[in-house]
Design a protein around this nucleic acid. Sequence first.
DNA 1: CATTTTAGTTCCATATACTGGAACTTAGTT
DNA 2: AACTAAGTTCCAGTATATGGAACTAAAATG
Lengths: 268, 268
Amino acid sequence: MAGDGTIGKACDVLDQVAAFQRPVRFAELLESSRFPKATLYRFLQSLTNQGMLSYDPDRQTYAPGLRLVRLAHAAWTQSSLAPIARPFLDTLSGETGETVHLAQLDSGQVLYVDKRNAAQPVEMYSQAGKVGPAYCTGVGKAMMAFLDEAELNKVISQQSFHRFTEKTLASEAALRSDLELIRSRGYALDDEEHETGIICVACPIRTPGGRMLGAVSVTGSTERMNFDQLEAWIPRVRRVAEQIAAEAQAWRFPETRPDGQKDRIQAT
Amino acid sequence: MAGDGTIGKACDVLDQVAAFQRPVRFAELLESSRFPKATLYRFLQSLTNQGMLSYDPDRQTYAPGLRLVRLAHAAWTQSSLAPIARPFLDTLSGETGETVHLAQLDSGQVLYVDKRNAAQPVEMYSQAGKVGPAYCTGVGKAMMAFLDEAELNKVISQQSFHRFTEKTLASEAALRSDLELIRSRGYALDDEEHETGIICVACPIRTPGGRMLGAVSVTGSTERMNFDQLEAWIPRVRRVAEQIAAEAQAWRFPETRPDGQKDRIQAT
DNA sequence: CATTTTAGTTCCATATACTGGAACTTAGTT
DNA sequence: AACTAAGTTCCAGTATATGGAACTAAAATG
């Protein structure tokens, strides 16, 4: 992180507030902040004035502000794969009857941008916008496996390798070897690596030119199914990933550049 | 706008990019920007590095970035009424069988933070995060009617008074007189003021202490119903608004302050 | 009730880092 | 090949962010 002057610092503060997952007091922020008191204070003031944070005068707490919701709507519409992928996710969810996720990479984390839950009606933001670890989820590994060396190194450096379950791949070496496998067979498995009882298959969404855009997954529970059943869906998942990629290519990345020219660093 | 130094300016740029509703080129932004070329350029660079914007190197276009989606998830969870209101909206939608909206004010605009569409399954971000005009929607007028004088003046100054239909209240005077009526009877009507064929009833969500938090509405179409039918729902809508207010009070605004002490200006 | 402690806010001289005109590079066009 | 437009970099000047310290308000304590 760091860098990018005032803007970068302001974004850090936003992230910090968001990370608390609850309204947070000035003192708490100050503690976990690299900024001195007066500086942090002024940042909070400005961000609050701008609606990027909201301030509760009763409890004297800060929380991410509604202006972010407004901006995110535009972001979701324009720079996520969700609008493009929607019909394909509907199909996949209908066919499998299982939970379907669409994810993209953001700051080395898995950002879920859409979801279909076959059983109950769709939960809104509660799922879109949610983040998860990349190194121990199907979608995360599917995406990482198809990054180029430089990007992958950066993303790996951002992983915490926390051991969520006894099956979690909690080291870089274990992860890299699994990524190798994923790269060769074209899809990723999550064998209760993040949550006990939850297994999933995921395919990367890649442009014909090789650009990695995101991933789709179908999730099941060990109570109702095993990997043999889940792996049977792989051709369909792959097909959906290809369809999304084709649409994305047409809508957003019209002229591919198979050569690796200087690209400005995207949000990674 | 203006003010708030670099942070305010950066937010302006974000809004500007979002306003285009499509990926936008540097030159287009420059045209509609109050910043000189080099300055705008540096802002775009920093925001892109931070993931607040995404940059498509092929088309050389900027769009709101995925980091906003991540941040908005936290905002929606923590500072919107949506999580609190969810069960009540479900009930209301079930009872009425009509479309139900939950909205809050942001920068003088109506920000829809949740929605129930009785017919088809919930659409995700496509609706949450969407904004609309305040002066010609039921929820907008319901909220404005219960602002204090200072806030109301500010919000009114932010209205465009564009005439969407021949029934639109396209002047401050007309609006103020309707707000008077709304204040006295406790609910707002939208009689095809925003969209022909669309009518709605809306109630404000207010704490016992009088703080205006948002609004709930039930929307119908003139094809299937008239105001007599719609107004029959008002007691239920009001009840739901009260329930949400009570919950919000308990969760987020525990000690009310009926006195009007200095409040830091919230996102308005 | 007086006192201490903690939390939050304001001040101001300093220096950092933002500014923007202009020059430059690159890509597309005639 | 010359021209035009779009995008990028440079750099001196200065506006603006910075943060130590002083201040105020509100709890906690004796």
